Computed example of a mutant assay.
Amino acid sequence: MTTTTERPIRIGLQIQPQHADYDAIRRAAAQAEDLGVDILFNWDHFYPLSGDPDGKHFECWTMLGAWAEATSRVEIGALVSCNSYRNPELLADMARTVDHISDGRLILGIGAGWFQKDYDEYGYEFGTPGSRLAALGEALPRIEKRFAELNPAPMRKIPVLIGGGGEKKTLRLVARHADIWHGFGDAEVAARKIEILDRHCADVGRDPAEIERSVGVSGSPSDSGDQLADLGITLFTVSADGPDYDLSELRQWLTWRDSRNG
């Protein structure tokens, strides 16, 4: 199991783009950047995931383009973009464009997709978990190929973040293609996933230390932060929901980050 790393602890904030006017989302992004957050994420859905299912909601990639102009330091990305909603070549071009607008600050978060209402309402074929994962596996090499063909090229090797914890398929895709793996769960769950990811890396001949480990967290960092960090996880993302975007939890995790990084 990978238990040590030279990477610094980083803190992300997922600003959930639901139940809020865009002015509030923009203010939350600016405030988080001022507080010192490392990464700002949104998500790639068309309807709220909690609260009123038909409440206010905004689209992911249009927002990332706006954040690229409205921020100056933080990395930005989706946690995560749904592979089903865009042709892989188009997604690569969109990511490259936002990469340039942001002066090289984009992270391409991607996953297989799961929220059936999005699919049904926007006319995408929902399929099965297996078919969506197969489509993701087909898309990732196409995205990589398109990055290499675009003119102008991306400003850097755009980091690819793959979200999900499926042990047989998703984590194998992470081992092959990802720069960052994002999962959920407590230290016991994370330890199991990391061990399996390391085995997949060995199978495909990749150094597992090349992949940053990321987890979604909530509550106080005193409850779980040190245990997760001791497993080699270095990216911790909290979330804030509209309409008010309370950042008090983010502040706690930023303080903890600074104490860990020294």
Results as ranks from 00 to 15, higher is better:
residue 160 V to R: 11
residue 148 A to M: 10
residue 206 R to G: 12
residue 179 D to F: 06
residue 49 L to E: 08
residue 131 S to T: 15
residue 15 I to E: 01
residue 166 G to I: 03
residue 208 P to I: 14
residue 62 T to D: 12
residue 147 F to C: 02
residue 140 L to Y: 05
residue 197 L to F: 09
residue 51 G to T: 01
residue 180 I to K: 00
residue 122 Y to Q: 15
residue 132 R to I: 03
residue 194 I to M: 10
residue 52 D to M: 06
residue 169 K to M: 14
residue 237 T to S: 11
residue 4 T to V: 13
residue 72 S to H: 02
residue 184 F to R: 09
residue 43 W to D: 11
residue 176 R to I: 10
residue 100 H to D: 13
residue 170 T to I: 14
residue 235 L to M: 10
residue 63 M to V: 13
residue 229 A to V: 03
residue 89 E to F: 09
residue 243 P to H: 05
residue 179 D to S: 06
residue 229 A to L: 07
residue 146 R to S: 15
residue 67 W to A: 00
residue 217 V to Y: 08
residue 204 V to D: 03
residue 19 H to R: 01
residue 146 R to H: 11
residue 254 L to Y: 07
residue 221 P to T: 01
residue 158 I to W: 04
residue 154 P to S: 03
residue 238 V to S: 13
residue 104 G to Y: 01
residue 137 G to V: 03
residue 138 E to H: 08
residue 103 D to I: 05
residue 164 G to M: 01
residue 96 R to Q: 12
residue 131 S to G: 07
residue 70 A to Q: 01
residue 204 V to W: 01
residue 218 S to L: 15
residue 65 G to K: 00
residue 178 A to L: 02
residue 21 D to A: 15
residue 202 A to T: 10
residue 103 D to K: 11
residue 179 D to A: 08
residue 199 R to E: 15
residue 202 A to F: 12
residue 73 R to M: 01
residue 150 L to Q: 15
residue 129 P to D: 14
residue 86 R to W: 04
residue 83 N to S: 15
residue 88 P to H: 06
residue 205 G to I: 02
residue 205 G to V: 02
residue 222 S to N: 13
residue 111 G to S: 03
residue 137 G to I: 04
residue 92 A to E: 05
residue 210 E to N: 09
residue 152 P to F: 05
residue 3 T to V: 09
residue 57 H to A: 11
residue 239 S to G: 13
residue 112 A to R: 01
residue 136 L to I: 06
residue 24 A to I: 07
residue 62 T to N: 12
residue 201 C to N: 02
residue 43 W to V: 12
residue 227 Q to K: 15
residue 73 R to F: 00
residue 184 F to T: 08
residue 115 F to E: 05
residue 138 E to I: 10
residue 118 D to S: 08
residue 185 G to N: 10
residue 64 L to F: 02
residue 250 L to F: 08
residue 248 S to Q: 06
residue 156 R to I: 14
residue 214 S to V: 09
residue 104 G to K: 00
residue 12 G to A: 04
residue 247 L to I: 10
residue 248 S to L: 06
residue 166 G to K: 01
residue 12 G to V: 06
residue 145 K to I: 11
residue 248 S to E: 14
residue 163 G to C: 07
residue 135 A to Y: 10
residue 188 E to R: 14
residue 8 P to E: 11
residue 50 S to T: 12
residue 141 P to C: 02
residue 119 Y to S: 05
residue 90 L to W: 08
residue 112 A to L: 07
residue 221 P to K: 00
residue 177 H to D: 13
residue 95 A to Y: 07
residue 262 G to F: 15
residue 74 V to C: 00
residue 203 D to M: 12
residue 126 F to H: 12
residue 131 S to E: 11
residue 214 S to F: 15
residue 246 D to P: 05
residue 98 V to Q: 04
residue 119 Y to G: 02
residue 122 Y to L: 15
residue 111 G to C: 03
residue 181 W to S: 05
residue 249 E to V: 14
residue 199 R to P: 15
residue 257 R to I: 10
residue 4 T to N: 08
residue 9 I to K: 01
residue 41 F to Y: 12
residue 227 Q to W: 08
residue 219 G to R: 01
residue 235 L to W: 10
residue 168 K to I: 05
residue 83 N to P: 04
residue 90 L to P: 03
residue 254 L to S: 02
residue 65 G to F: 05
residue 229 A to C: 09
residue 186 D to T: 04
residue 33 E to H: 00
residue 85 Y to M: 03
